[in-house]
Design a protein around this nucleic acid. Structure first.
Lengths: 132, 132
DNA sequence: CTGAATCCGATCCGATACTG
DNA sequence: CAGTATCGGATCGGATTCAG
């Protein structure tokens, strides 16, 4: 049932064969929020898919402490990252991508490629639309 | 430069090699909103990737007239769909996926597959997290 | 039939202050 | 260092009404 490599991804009937677009939208709403994508990609590119709170804060310009905390909490709740507290002084907390979180990198890669290829056309479409 | 089929999607260095996560997040914000995904998938599964306003309204339970209009407008602005007005009485308007919009089906398929495989694990992670 | 305009509650998120 | 608590502006989206 793995339809990969069958070259029928452009066949609407193939896409519509899937149920539960609501779950897809829910996922997109999750990782489509203001900061989740940056957190996941930042964790992916840091050492061992692992980083502490302050590292993430520095690697994501513009994120507020509040949103960093909240976004990390949500990703942890979804099982995409883990949180490990080291009871030292000052405290140290390390976040790490789970296997589930890492498995999301592959489909995200598909979107990243699409953006790399098509983003300019999207922008041109916007310009055409706006100049009317 | 097409890194498909190289099996390195799980290598963080591969993912981080891409620039502009902001554009990716912007895309996710677009199609991650409340209704865009339903519209794209609905158009994809209807005849010839084409449907009129009222058809879409019926095929997407719960959407308000306002949000249907606004979402269609945004997708049109991004060049993902076209709008064609037939000046009859009563007026008829048909929307259709563009080639650009259809090209988005392929990466979306990746996310749909991911959800199909992993959504249950996400839900279980949420349950574990919430029961604490 | 396909919108546009307005109102309004809900949610998001940045700023700020405070804590173990 | 890594949070929590609170406030307020901005945005989202549903309901309703009106229009070509």
């Amino acid at each position: 049932m793995k339809n990969i490599n069958e070259n029928n991804h452009f066949n609407p009937a193939f896409v519509c064969g899937h149920k539960d677009p609501a779950a897809v939208r829910e996922l997109l709403t999750k990782i489509g929020d203001r900061w989740s994508i940056f957190l996941i990609l930042s964790l992916a590119k840091l050492h061992r898919n692992r980083a502490r709170f302050s590292e993430l804060e520095k690697s994501i310009p513009g994120i507020s402490q509040r949103m960093l905390t909240l976004t990390l909490r949500n990703l942890e709740r979804d099982g995409l990252i883990t949180r490990e507290l080291f009871p030292e002084v000052p405290p140290r907390v390390e976040y790490e991508l789970t296997n589930l979180g890492m498995s999301l990198l592959r489909p995200m890669e598909g979107l990243i490629d699409w953006v790399a290829i098509n983003w300019e056309e999207v922008n041109k479409a916007q310009s055409r639309f706006d100049s009317r």
